[in-house]
Amino acid sequence: MLKRVHYRSSYLPYLLVAPQIIITILFFIWPAAQALYQSFLLQDAFGLSTEFVWFDNFIELYDNPNYLNSFARTGFFSLAVASLSMGFALFFAALADRVIKGSHTYRTLLIIPYAVAPVLAGTLWLFLFNPTLGIITYFLDTFGIDWNHKLNSAQAMSLVILAAAWKQISYNFLFFIAAMHSIPKSLIEASAIDGAGPLHRFRTIIFPLISPTTFFLLVVNIIYAFFDTFGIIHAITAGGPGNSTEILVYKVYNDGFVGLDLGGSAAQSVILMFIVVVLTVVQFKYVERKVQY
């Protein structure tokens, strides 16, 4: 933590941490506390009076099938995004790890989606799957598939999952490649001498050895799907049709800024914060374990 040798100074360290601490208090701690406080309040429709209602907002959420559905939907969404994106990334990484020539070019092209803003990614996929114009819609039509995510909620969900997974492939790819590079070459060589072919080697040596990275990425991808996909959904479906793509983060925004249910939205925020805390702790437990190696 602290260096064995360190400076003593009366005021300098406080001066150094001050900017960060002030911004943290103003824009992180204070709003979080506000959210917590507001989650205990009930405001009437005109914002004229507020009442302290303890856990009523939370109880209401618990009794609200809409919210519970959104919860389940978010779970499905994030698992689908994580597995799709990680699956493809792992596949590409395994191949790219095998080839020497051109692997740099592949990497350069594969990291591009990382730099694309979620809302732009959403717009892009929206265009490809546009029910009347989209190129992919056109292809699907020739196969007899009628695509309209504005009406079909299963198709809407598939599209946001696809867009979200596409954007995250870069990140997963880079981590899988790094993990594979860190496997000692001698291990691979030893198993090759033992007569294991490339596929067998991947299954019995490489995959088990990168499992810490896989687990780490699973957590990161879930966090990503939970919180960083707002722009994608906002651009493609705006939560629709019905509420079929309204994940938790989107619902906080919708209920708070559009529906103006401040207490309910705040209660949702608090629940989300709790989820982030749990996920972050899991992630850090993992980091700690990794550091000890």
Binding site: L272, M273, V276
Partner: peptide, 17 residues
């Protein structure tokens, strides 16, 4: 204090912020 900000993405505390 800095550590806990790690846990609060802007999307979550958007309204009070």
């Amino acid at each position: 204090m800095i550590f806990i900000t790690l846990m609060l993405p802007v999307e979550v505390r958007i309204l009070p912020t």
